[in-house]
Design a binder for these strands. Structure first.
Lengths: 196, 196
DNA sequence: TGTACATCAGTGAACGCGCGTTCACTGATGTAC
DNA sequence: TGTACATCAGTGAACGCGCGTTCACTGATGTAC
């Protein structure tokens, strides 16, 4: 039973790893079922057995990367003691993770996937709830502006996502290390609001 | 001479209009050379005569939409008298334009194009220079934090772009009118910095 | 323990489809004398 | 003004390619008795 399941799990891993390697080497353009099959050495039929479709593989990869960044950020958040340090640390955490996991970041920013596919949405939902749970007391105490959680997410993740997106495209003038130094504080100002 | 050039210009218009209609009705997925040719009634050969390739048409459409939003924002900016009203008005201007030009906004957010294609980069460059010219005095006077223009662009456009992107995907919980009310001020706080 | 059967995992040739592109061509407009 | 020529604009059948998918099949592992 275990051995059987393990064989399958290993194939799934091999396929997802190959997919990630393709993003690293050739970008989205190179990411096709043919390239995944060739690089992994796994047959098309086997890929279909496990993922149902190419889209299924694609979504699984996207969901996995999403889970990884968000877990990293949440982990950082829990170590912070104030609203300010929490927000700033999360921002830094996202930028650092992106810098250190370029291929996965490339998946998140260029894959022909939407964050709103059910499989991905579920991965995000539970994690956003956790962040919201941490945030609420700070809002109630007035340390963070009384904004809807969605708006706060947009204010914090917006600049970060755009920064990383451009960095991935190798746009000139984008210095991720400068962003790590400078942006978290600015983002804090935007959610803190006028008081204090 | 004029008549000849006009005939060509008209064809170009017809093609770009058809492309935009396709984005409106079917999204990026439906945007193929076949669909553009069918909808416009123009022949493939003629499309190639004017744009060189399907990619050429695609880039032209993207560049046109880019020019339109940016010109709208700059126009708004010039009417503002303070740093704060300028930044806030630009943010509002972008969100309003997106709401009122959904198809063009869809092109900007979903087209398989990069902002960094030469043809598009040039359209952006000259306009960014103009914004920078407006911004510099405010930075020098300390009314806006001493950040690089790129970082300021990321801080302001990041949240806006993410908001519009999600609105275009019909994500639940995204209210563009709420964003228009609330976000510009937050963005101002992020670029203003700690003082004041 | 051995054997029969069921289920899971994996194979790869074959398929249809629609994409972007080419090319030899005709028609319209402008230019020269 | 007329005619000859050059250039620009437009046509659409034909092409090759690579994509995602299917399917009839074999092999491996687990289960029952």
């Amino acid at each position: 039973m275990t051995a059987k399941q393990d064989r399958g799990r290993q194939t799934i891993r091999i396929l997802l790893d190959a997919a990630l390697d393709i993003f690293a080497d050739e970008g989205v353009e190179g990411f096709t079922i043919t390239s995944v099959v060739n690089r992994s050495g796994v047959s098309v039929g086997s890929l279909y057995h496990h993922f149902g479709s190419f889209d299924g593989l694609s979504t699984a990869l996207y969901a996995q990367c999403t889970a990884e960044v968000m877990d990293t950020m949440i982990d950082t958040m829990h170590r912070a003691s104030t609203a300010r340090t929490g927000i700033e640390a999360m921002a830094r955490s996202y930028l650092r993770w992106s810098r250190d996991h370029r291929p996965k970041s490339l998946v998140l920013h260029t894959a022909r996937e939407s964050e709103y596919r059910p499989a991905v949405a579920e991965v995000k939902r539970s994690r956003l709830v956790e962040i919201e749970k941490w945030l609420m007391p700070h809002i109630e105490a007035g340390r963070v502006q009384a904004l809807s959680p969605v708006v706060i997410e947009l204010l914090t993740m917006g600049p970060l996502a755009m920064t990383v997106g451009r960095w991935l495209e190798n746009m000139p003038g984008i210095d991720l290390d400068e962003a790590i130094t400078v942006m978290p504080e600015c983002i804090w100002f935007s959610v803190k609001g006028p008081v204090g």
